[in-house]
Design a protein around this nucleic acid. Structure first.
Length: 659
DNA sequence: TAAAATGCATGT
DNA sequence: CATGCATTTTAC
């Protein structure tokens, strides 16, 4: 102290609320809590709750957000001053701060990682520009906008009246859904509240953009997707945060959009795995939005042509109610569905063998083309991993111990199939459905469909839509449109027919959502086809006895979802259980597991080998223990990071891609 | 990446 | 067993 005067003496703390609680941008689990700093007079005005700041943390300068300003600190030691107040823009709203904390907790992850997903990078020049003035609330929509659903008009009236209905919405086929979502947002706006709508990809966001502009007029909604540049992205984010716009449409990160007075969250096609965030802590947009509705008391709509098992569970727990289609509207709108029968019949069909296009499908396509209408052909994507199923009845092969999917790591004649979850070999496997002991690998999709179709229908133009060359729309003219699932263009007036040729490749995929996922893709394609009364036909290359095929024929998504949920409950799969996947170096995984205070009901499956010399281990608990499990895993990870354990372990809650 | 805490060699 | 210097740890 006898030396030169030190810098704290040159700074004066702010007169009131001199302490800032700061969420520092540090991903270490044991440092995932607020840290207190003194606010110097010169930073007093800018360091408001929600503002970005820079602080000296363990020697280095890091970014952070002010969570709150307080008079005193609980911290025993000396407080450092904020190094600087980056800007006075309160980008982190209290509501989003609470949401991000809850999401981090559920995912056994760190707040800083969630905030990185929730808040776009700052763009200073943009921040200096004003955002537009907010518009007055619009008139509520005519309740008839949802007249095709039994309780649709009532739902709109409830939203307009400030209530918060929670709905699972099996959407009617056709192109009406973007306007129906726009009507839900309009009703919410009429109550003075805002809405957040999350869709799987930018193409769906574009469709909603058009529908919202048509229904709400200009300036009432904003699109938040990843593809805008940094300045534009920040400009739109600020317009939302400043309250200029109360309706947000976008992809998964838009689920965190800081909409003022949130009244409604909507997720469209929640079974699409694009809703699963690939970056830590791997939150799923549906879970983010449901958590948000829970925390804020906002309404929630889980919609899509298909219904997921998670959606069905919201109904069985009573958290949500169904928004049921009117029976007449369904009968009038759904296409006619023809299953192709078993594949023994296909094998005898010479047309199927030569052109790979069964006669039934060929006839349906020719009829539609004859009426001057386009035909959609859905083909599997390349690269499905072969999974094992019963050679007789095609049921997926499952482990007798934990019901995980069976796989084979090497040649069929030398290796024994083993469970991909717990690693147990399944040498004496027998099919629980039919008793057969023979296994077969899944059918792998073919790629030459477009050329072959061109030869089968000479003179008819063939377009493809897949991968990075995706078409948005096709004209109401005779053409063949070959598309992979998720890349189907919308046809003006609807397709005359759709041929769903990927039946077995979809149904025997190795993940536990195979049936649900196959049906979801079929529904999404079939919804683009004209109504049966208008000649619309869907041909599906799968056996009519399968529940997924039955659900398509009867257009009964909720029925299938209920069955799927029951099946998951039987097998103790999510959402009827909570799973945590721990992946990393073998020693690190066992170290983390040993440090975890597991709930009594926890079941440990594995470890099994994972790519890169890693191992993966699963922990399964009943749903009610989900929060306890996440907290225990987080605590164990914190203990590891505190003692500087080198190799990391990835923790994923209910990971979407369980092989 | 800065201060504090701890470790360690050196000289009495 | 102080002292000075190097290394490790903490994290406001």
């Amino acid at each position: 102290m006898a030396g030169s005067g030190r810098k704290p003496s040159s700074l004066t703390p702010a007169a009131t609320l001199p302490v800032a609680r700061v969420a520092v941008d540090v991903s270490l689990p044991h440092l995932d809590r607020p840290f207190d700093y003194l606010v110097a007079e010169q930073h007093d005005a800018a360091a408001v709750p929600g503002a970005r700041v820079r602080v000296r943390f363990a020697g280095r300068l890091v970014d952070g957000y002010v969570l709150e300003r307080t008079q005193r600190s609980e911290h025993e030691g000396r407080l450092a001053f904020l190094a600087r107040a980056t800007s006075a823009e309160p980008v982190l709203s209290p509501e989003v701060a609470t949401l991000a904390r809850a999401v981090a907790d559920r995912q056994a992850g760190v707040l800083a990682d969630v905030l990185r997903l929730a808040i776009p990078p700052r763009h200073g020049a943009t921040e200096r520009q004003p955002s537009p003035d907010p518009l007055a609330p619009p008139a509520p929509p005519d309740p008839s906008a949802l007249a095709r659903y039994v309780d649709g008009p009532a739902a709109l009236q409830a939203l307009a009246g400030g209530e918060s209905p929670r709905l699972v919405w099996p959407a009617l086929p056709g192109g009406g859904w973007p306007d129906e979502i726009a009507a839900l947002a309009q009703a919410t706006l009429a109550s003075g509240r805002g809405a957040v709508v999350v869709v799987p990809d930018a193409r769906d966001a574009d469709r909603l953009d058009a529908a919202f502009a048509a229904r709400l007029g200009a300036g009432r909604h904003i699109v938040l997707t990843a593809d805008a540049g940094p300045a534009e992205r920040y400009r739109r984010f600020l317009a939302v945060r400043r309250g200029s716009v109360q309706v947000v449409v976008g992809t998964r990160a838009a689920g965190f959009a800081p909409v003022h007075d949130l009244g409604l969250v909507v997720i469209w096609d929640d079974g699409d795995d694009l809703h699963a965030e690939p970056r830590a802590p791997y939150p799923h947009a549906r879970e983010v939005l449901l958590q948000r509705a829970h925390l804020t008391g906002a309404g929630a709509v889980v919609g899509g042509f298909a219904v997921t098992a998670e959606g069905a569970r919201l109904l069985t727990t009573g958290w949500a109610r169904p928004l049921e289609p009117d029976r007449n509207a369904l009968r009038a709108g759904a296409p006619r569905v023809t299953p192709l029968g078993d594949d023994a019949a296909l094998a005898r069909d010479p047309a199927a063998r030569s052109a790979r296009l069964p006669t039934v499908a060929w006839d349906a396509a020719r009829a539609a083309l004859g009426l001057g209408r386009p035909v959609l052909v859905q083909v599997p994507r390349r690269g499905y991993q072969p999974a094992l199923s019963c050679a007789e009845c095609r049921s997926p092969a499952r482990c007798a111990h934990c019901a995980g999917p069976l796989g084979r790591s090497g040649r069929p004649d030398v290796t024994v199939p083993a469970c991909r979850w717990c690693g147990r070999p399944a040498a004496d496997w027998h099919c629980p459905e039919c008793g057969s002991a023979r296994l077969r690998a899944a059918v792998v999709g073919e790629r030459r469909t477009a050329e072959e179709l061109g030869r089968a229908f000479p003179g008819v133009p063939v377009a493809t839509s897949a991968g990075d060359r995706v078409l948005a729309t096709v004209a109401a003219e005779p053409s063949l449109v070959v598309a992979t699932p998720g890349a189907e263009p919308v046809a003006d007036g609807g397709y005359g027919a759709a041929l769903l040729l990927d039946g077995w490749a979809l149904l025997t995929r190795p993940d536990l959502r195979a049936g649900e996922e196959a049906l979801r893709r079929w529904f999404n394609a079939a919804a683009l086809v004209r109504a049966g009364a208008d000649g619309g036909t869907v041909v599906v290359a799968a056996e009519s006895g399968l529940p997924a095929v039955q659900a398509l024929i009867r257009w009964a998504p909720a029925w299938h979802a209920g069955r799927e949920l029951a099946a998951r409950a039987e097998l103790r799969f999510p959402p009827a259980a909570r799973l945590a996947a721990l992946t990393g170096a073998p020693a690190a995984v066992s170290d983390l597991l040993a440090a975890t205070d597991l709930p009594a009901a926890a079941e440990v499956l594995g470890p099994v080998p994972a790519p890169g010399g890693h191992e993966r281990l699963l922990v399964r608990v009943p749903p009610r223990d989900g929060a306890v499990l996440s907290a225990a895993l987080k605590a164990a990870a914190a203990a590891r990071s505190a003692r500087k354990a080198a190799d990391p372990v990835r923790v994923q809650i209910d990971p979407i891609e369980l092989l």
